[in-house]
């Protein structure tokens, strides 16, 4: 067994057994954010592109999924699918603009575009403004399985999470993923070898956006709510933090990071402004002393990339 398979087996076992002892709603939240962080990590960890605006895909997809399920009466699978499609489309438009610059500029551009989506969400009538879209029905999966049952919903979220995770895993280890890494390391070299780097970057961006949309669309069904919090820049910051804590460019890091940050937010929820302070402090400490993240350090110690 390779280390990746062991880690994958451990992860599946954890999410399969944990609902017996941990509150399932919390675990579903962790899985949504883990998928979101994995999607984000696909860009920064393998493409070297730091997006500071991923909330636009997460939150935008949450609105689409909530609206589709509540107003159009879509069944859950179609609501999530619509959310993914919308996020991919938004990712295509934003990607065309953002990939024109690299590094710090890329981060600033994605942040600005996400802020535009945020202001649009504040003004657009269908998002419900400050209230958001509340009481979103979970519906019946394929018209058969009642997702208002916690157990059914859990299995649905678990399946989507695992599907998204395995897709990302496959992409990272495909020839496409190798080219992406080559672009991260040395873009002009990859260009000179005949790879159309802009197309690779755009495709990675759309893929990452679509998977972030899958996470956001699912999240809207889990909490039966889509709100401005999901599109705010703090959400973009949170997903960066999760990935950083778990380990940038590691396969399993974002999952661990999401678990840590969601758990922390849960325990500190009643402390108000302190949550922000603690999150900021973790950012500072991670950047200064812990740049590999939890899984990165573990992998370094085991001398195997995880």
């Amino acid at each position: 067994m390779t280390p990746h398979r062991v880690a994958l087996a451990l992860m599946i076992a954890f999410f399969a057994l944990a609902p017996a002892v941990i509150y399932p709603l919390f675990l579903m939240k962790v899985m949504c954010f883990a998928l979101f962080a994995c999607a984000f990590n696909l860009l920064i960890g393998y493409g070297g592109l730091l997006s500071f605006g991923h909330a636009m895909f997460f939150g935008g997809a949450a609105y689409i999924s909530a609206h589709a399920a509540k107003v159009w009466g879509f069944p859950p699978e179609l609501a999530v699918l619509a959310a993914v499609a919308a996020a991919a489309l938004l990712g295509f438009a934003a990607g065309l603009i953002a990939i024109r610059r690299q590094g710090i500029y890329f981060a600033m551009i994605t942040l600005a575009l996400a802020q535009m989506v945020f202001f649009f969400s504040v003004q657009a009538p269908f998002t419900g403004g400050e209230d958001g879209i509340q009481a979103v029905p979970r519906g019946r999966l394929f018209g058969l399985v009642d997702l208002s049952q916690v157990r059914n919903m859990y299995v649905f979220v678990f399946a989507l999470f695992l599907g998204g995770f395995l897709l990302i895993y496959r992409v990272i280890h495909s020839p496409f993923g190798q080219v992406l890494k080559a672009i991260r390391e040395n873009e002009s070299r990859a260009l000179s070898l005949g790879y159309d780097t802009d197309r690779y970057k755009l495709l990675a961006f759309v893929l990452s956006a679509a998977l972030a949309g899958l996470a956001g669309g699912t999240k809207a069904l889990v909490f039966q709510l889509a709100s401005l919090t999901d599109v705010h820049w703090t959400m973009s910051g949170e997903v960066v933090l999760m990935t950083l804590v778990g380990g940038l460019g590691t396969v399993f890091g974002p999952v661990v990071g999401a678990l840590v940050i969601v758990a922390m937010a849960n325990y500190l929820a009643q402390l108000g402004a302190w949550v922000t302070v603690v999150q900021g402090a973790i950012f500072v400490v991670c950047v200064l002393t812990f740049r590999r993240g939890v899984i990165g350090e573990l992998g370094h110690w085991l001398k195997k990339p995880l």
Binding site: G237, V240, A273, G280, F283, V284, C286, V287, R291
Partner: peptide, 24 residues
Amino acid sequence: KLDHLYGLLLTFGLALVIQGLFRH
């Protein structure tokens, strides 16, 4: 000596800390 993105992440974290402290 590191990737410039780390500077962005550090100053973002600092902004969160400062804004959180003032809000508190």
